[in-house]
Design a protein around this nucleic acid. Structure first.
Lengths: 226, 226
DNA sequence: ACAAAAGTGTTTGATCTACACCCATGC
DNA sequence: GCATGGGTGTAGATCAAACACTTTTGT
């Protein structure tokens, strides 16, 4: 009864990173048909013995060498003609990763020539329906950042309040008031002041903070509005 | 390259209805293996030339005779062993429908013996991973009701403020203050007072309202917090 | 000394919460 | 006339928004 026609399912990932004050996503240059040489979101066909979450983690790991990353499934794209070679459902995930330091991207596996971080405001034309997948992913994190502490996933462990505000501004696409932002953020009590200053900057060094997951966990249930 | 193993995808629907002061979902009694005679969410394998949204609407229409219903995809379940006969991804949708009047359920198609409305607090054991699918669906509408006007989808066109409050209480699972609730709801300006009273009740008749979609549409972009 | 970003409070208006009684109707 | 739900206002607390100057540091 089961498979009545040829079909498959794939995962596509929108992997956000914060670097040099810009919000970027990871794109690959495809090395296979269809859409050979096009830019695309990292993605892959799901393996026979792989759950969706596993498959998403694998793709991310293969491209970045990173594991234990915040990823979330957010939508499934299933238009009949979205893939030229057959019926392929795509389950979309987003991830938020720390680009701090100099974690190089891994030299890429078979399905991509190379991977690059691209500013979300300067995306090239994308393969398949990947523009649509990206759009919906961005929309999701815009909503989610208001109620969940996802901004911290994009920052190094130690960060300044200005960096944090920067991320909120980039994702929500509005300017925020510095004083009000700090007051509110600190009022939640989930930022730990590290008694430590930024180094290597040519101006007054800012205080470093860490996101305190334990304290956040204790708030669970209480709706937070960042 | 495409289909490397036998797989298929299905849709499962959590169809919420509000009836006699209770929040219910539609369950079917399965008439096919696997899980023959078990209770399950309405669902079906997606057809070859059917998009996911189309498939979800079709399932709902076949069971209830209703069309033009608010449905939304909310999650895709893809554990390797979730279906005993092979690899079957399930894309889950929820719908909110007006049970008002006496729309009977259609006598059921092949895959179900019968369909029933079941109070969400008294669900039987469900087939497959349907309990998990339901749980996530309920969680979704709990969140969504705070920001989107989905409660109105469950009510007849003309409704009283008490009925509306009732739905908020059932979904969010808390008691609300009557005065505060009314003040807030009316303050959005999306309820139209119909200058008309409830009929056939054995106590003071309540004013009927209608949800004004046009006015709501004009608020678009502004975040509402119901 | 200047450039660059860090850091810091107060006022005003809006919104949220808690709370209790009289009203209209059908029986 | 009584039972049932309909309908209404206020005070206090909390939260959100607007707004500008001084401090620190490196060059």
């Amino acid at each position: 009864m089961l498979p009545q026609f040829n079909s498959a399912f794939s995962i596509d990932c929108v992997i956000f990173g914060f670097d040099a004050g810009e919000l970027k996503i990871l794109l690959i240059e495809r090395n296979e048909e269809p859409f050979k040489d096009w830019w695309a979101l990292p993605g892959n066909i799901v393996g026979e013995n792989e759950s969706l979450d596993q498959s998403a983690s694998r793709i991310l790991h293969e491209l970045t060498g990173l594991g234990d990353i915040y990823m979330e499934q957010y939508y499934t794209f299933g238009d009949v003609a979205r893939h030229p070679q057959g019926r392929v459902l795509s389950v979309a995930y987003y991830a938020l990763i720390r680009l701090g330091g100099d974690k190089a991207l891994k030299p890429i596996s078979n399905y991509a020539k190379q991977a690059y971080w691209v500013n979300i405001k300067e995306l090239p034309r994308l393969a398949f329906d990947h523009q649509q997948i990206f759009d919906k992913g961005l929309e999701k994190i815009k909503r989610r950042i208001k109620h969940q502490p996802i901004a911290f996933e994009l920052l190094p462990e130690k960060f300044t309040l200005t960096q944090l505000q920067n991320i909120y501004e980039l994702i929500s696409d509005k300017k925020l008031d510095k004083r009000n932002f700090r007051k509110k953020m600190l009022s939640f009590g989930v930022l730990k002041d590290l008694d430590e200053k930024q180094k290597g900057v040519s101006f007054r060094a800012a205080t470093l903070y860490r996101f305190d997951k334990r304290k956040y966990a204790k708030l669970f249930g209480k709706e937070i509005s960042f």
